[in-house]
Amino acid sequence: MLTRPQLADIFDRLGTPPAGQKLNANAREQVPVREVKSRVGQVIAILTSRKMRRGIQSESGHVEFTVTVSKEHTNDVLEYYAQPCELRFIIDAASYTSSLGSTFRDTRC
């Protein structure tokens, strides 16, 4: 997990606007923004993260957990959060919520 000075340096290098910095700060302080729940056919999986120094919960033993493990072991991902913010997408009357957010090494997202 990055320190605040390390994160500020990345924001400066990437030219991250204040709104993006605020979104990241809120995600870091308030994760998860919603309770991780087990739904029909899903399980709650918990990865004890060395990178993040905390347990990271995912709502699926397959897709989300696989992404979490990948983020844990990829050097290009500096930090990641489960349920970092609520972004709603409405597609054909169905609503979807973002589940994982990441800070990548030297990459514009």
Rank of each mutant, 00 (worst) to 15 (best):
T48F: 02
Q57I: 00
V43H: 11
D106N: 03
Q42N: 11
R28T: 04
I56P: 03
L2I: 09
E72K: 00
G15N: 07
A27K: 06
D106K: 02
R108P: 01
Q42S: 13
F11S: 07
Y81N: 01
R88M: 08
V36A: 04
M1G: 15
I91A: 11
R50K: 14
S38I: 04
K22W: 15
F65R: 07
C109T: 07
V63T: 02
V33P: 06
R13P: 10
S95I: 14
G101F: 09
N24K: 06
P32S: 01
R4N: 13
I90C: 06
E72R: 00
M52S: 02
K22P: 02
Q6Y: 13
F89N: 06
R53S: 11
V40I: 12
V33A: 02
Q21Y: 12
R13T: 05
I10F: 14
Y81W: 11
P17Q: 03
A93D: 15
I10T: 11
E72S: 01
E79D: 08
V69G: 00
G55F: 02
P17I: 02
L78D: 01
A45G: 04
A8K: 13
D9K: 14
T3I: 00
Q30D: 14
P84A: 02
L2Q: 10
P18K: 15
L100Q: 11
T66H: 08
V43P: 06
R88P: 03
Y80E: 05
C85M: 06
M52A: 04
Q57A: 04
F11K: 05
A82V: 07
I46W: 08
